[in-house]
Structures are given as C-alpha cells and as structure tokens.
Design a protein around this nucleic acid. Structure first.
Lengths: 221, 221
DNA sequence: GTCTATAAGTGGATAGAC
DNA sequence: GTCTATCCACTTATAGAC
C-alpha cells in the first residue's frame, strides 16, 4: 500500500515490531507474550512500541490482515478450472493441492497460521475467518467441482456434497495435525509433512469414484 | 478411589471447585480464569481453594486425569472385535463409531475435551496425550482391523495404512471441527453435529473397498 | 476450613523529558 | 521516535486469626 518491499534489509521499526511479534506469538501465543518482550526482541523499550501500534491488539490485527491480503491475491479463475478438468482429473487435483499448500507453506505464512490456530479460541474474528475460509468456502467450491466432473462423465454419480467432504476434510485433518499437534517437531514445513499424504488420499478418492477407462493413472510425487 | 459418588447432590467443596473449574476453563481457557473467579463461582475466597488443591496447575492436572481414567474404562477386547468383524463389516463400523462417540459426548466429558483442545498449545502433557490417544493409537488399531478384514476377504486389497488414515482421519476432522471451530454454536453435542456425517463417511469407504456380494447394505441412522 | 491481609510479581498503557 | 518513570489493575500464593 505505502511502498514496495525494500530491495534488501532496511526494515522500518514498525516492520521489525511486526516480525518480532509474529515470531513470538507463533511460539508462545498472544497472551503469553508481553509488550516488554517484543520490545526486547526489537531492541527498543516497550513504551516506544506505542509510537507504531495503538496497542497490543492492533499488532495482532495487522498480522491477521496481512494473511488475509496475501490469500486474497491467489486462487484459480473459473476458466482455468474448466480447462484443467477437461485435461485430466489427475492434473486438476494436483493443481488444487499445490494451490492449497502454497497458501500454507512459506515460513512467514506458516507462523501466522500457527498464531491463528492458537488464538482461534480467544478471538471471534479469527474463528469466523477459519470457519469461512478454511471450512465452508472450500467445501462449497469442491462440491461445484465434483458436480461438474459428474456432468462430464469423468467420475461416477455420488452425492457431490459427501464427495466434497470426503476429499477436503482430509486436507483439513492434515492442517490440524500439523498446526496443532505437530508444529515444532521433526517436520520442517507443512508441505514436508502433508504433501505425500495428500497424494495418497487423492489416489484413494480417484480409485473410488473415477470412471474406469485406462489402466493405472495414479499420481506420482 | 475414595468413596462412591454420593446418591444425590451433596458435593464436597473440592468437587465443587472441580466442577466450577471445568465450566470456567472450558469457556475461557485455563490462563484466562483466575483463582478469584473460581472461588466466586464456588462461593468461597480464593485463598480457601488452596486447602483443597496445592495450586492452580493441580486443578488442571486433576481434570486431565479424570478424563484419562474415564477413557481407560472403555474400549473393546480383541475377541469382541473378531466376532463383530465376522458378523458384518457394517455392524463393526457402527459399533466402532458408537464407541468413539461415547468417549466424547457426555456433557462433562465434552467440556474436558474442549479444555484440552484449548490448552494443547501450552501444555506438553496434553499435547502428548492428544498425539498418542487421538492420533497414533487409533490409526494403528484401524490398520490392524483393515488387515484382518482383507485376510477374511471382506474388503479388497489396498495399503492398510492408507485405509486406516482414510477412515480415521475423518473422525479426527470432525473432532477438530466441533471442539475447535463449532463449540458453543448451534450444536448441542458432538454426536449431534458429527454422527450423521460419520455414517455418510463410513458408507463412502465401504462402497469403495467392500467386496461386492449383496445389493445395497448402506448403514442407516 | 474459611476468612482477612498482604506479599511479590507481571501485565498494558501513559506522561513528559530529550 | 526513544527514553525514564510511573500508574494501576490484576495475578498466584502464603501467613495467621478465628
């Protein structure tokens, strides 16, 4: 909005507060981090933070909005989807998965998803964001996609709502497994833990619903 | 351990502290509830609580242990499983689902699961409990079950590990959906939100992997 | 077993000098 | 824009009277 990202590393104090907050909140949760602690990380006194953010809540707010902006800048158009479906369902699923993982997997984005996962209990705005963006919109989207595939005769007839749940719930399960249970463990990123599992899942769903016409067309990594 | 549940409602002060804590923690989270608040709910001063529990952490500890004790008192034996599998896979899945839902759905148990869901970030003991009891043990168990079903020729050959994930991940997804995203909404219990969805899921899995021999054997509610 | 009083600490936030 | 100094609300927990 204001200016482009500077070529290298001259971050403003506000940006450094932002980054320090993302790091600390993602490790300890919002409540467990004090303004003193953020200040210490940045190298200024807590009182100076108030020259850049109105209060502690405003920092969290700006972190949430940063993710929302970033996500809004992605996602396929209807035409792109149509082309992909006609090409092959395998290619389509692979593209869809890749898109989902892209929205989760760069290091800064992961930290923010982790913050949201921790704070979803205490913050109504975060909860609404989760329910809409992670649950309801994708399920509706996949219902449309499966309906389209049925009309084209690519997959068998089955309740498209159930099919959408079957397909996408697994991605959500992986999200929860990583961001709630496995964060800070051996895995270095969401993709690292989840991508292979998602391929197995996609192959299972395809093997169940695809109209047979060729031999073996499993996805490969 | 000490004495049986009194026939009606003469709760000891310690039990009233326990119940007030379960209610408050499940609504606001552990950190957001003060000893003053618990005392107010019980009708005593905060300092009096320390006559019954060593400190605040000890209250949470006793809540967790209460759930662990309760869950330990359930679960099917190997022989019961064998009989059920031989009878019919439909019956087996139905019994399995019922068992899972029983471990979640009485009002007090739900509140405790909610507390654990909130505190899984801050408490290493809770995280370990979740990963073991909710993730790894059930997946291993279902892997064994699917392997057994394949040997009996009830279901088609497929990687049993993948099948276990496909089946049980949906239950976990439902758990997260309810206890993290939908708790305190229109649903009156986990069963109320999730049971029908779990039936749809079971039917989908069965329709994919079952060896055909009779007409239509979908589960009914 | 409950009370009052109090210790000892931490939190977010503001005022005003520089 | 950063600092020091300070406010004040609130936290867990303990000591000791009753």
């Amino acid at each position: 909005m204001k200016k482009e990202k500077s070529p290298q590393k001259t971050l403003t104090t506000k940006e450094r507060i932002f980054q320090a907050s993302v790091n600390l909140f993602s490790q300890k949760g919002f409540d467990a981090v004090s303004m003193r602690e953020i200040g210490r990380e940045v190298g200024i006194r807590e009182s100076s933070i108030y020259n850049h953010y109105k209060n502690k809540d405003a920092i969290l707010e700006s972190i949430i909005n940063h993710l929302i902006d970033k996500l809004g800048a992605m996602s396929l158009t209807d035409e792109e989807m149509d082309v992909l479906i006609s090409e092959s369902p395998e290619l389509f699923f692979e593209t869809g998965s890749r898109e989902f993982f892209n929205g989760m997997s760069n290091p800064e984005t992961e930290k923010i998803w982790r913050i949201l996962s921790i704070e979803v209990f205490h913050n109504e705005k975060i909860k609404t964001f989760f329910v809409n963006e992670l649950l309801e919109s994708p399920i509706k989207e996949w219902e449309r996609i499966f309906t389209k595939m049925m009309k084209k005769g690519i997959i068998k007839e089955y309740d498209p709502r159930v099919l959408a749940m079957e397909y996408f719930s697994f991605a959500l399960y992986l999200f929860f497994e990583y961001f709630i249970l496995k964060y800070d463990t051996k895995y270095s990123s969401f993709t690292d833990m989840a991508y292979k599992k998602m391929i197995d899942h996609t192959n299972f769903i395809l093997s169940s619903v695809k109209v047979e016409n060729d031999e073996d067309s499993n996805l490969k990594l």
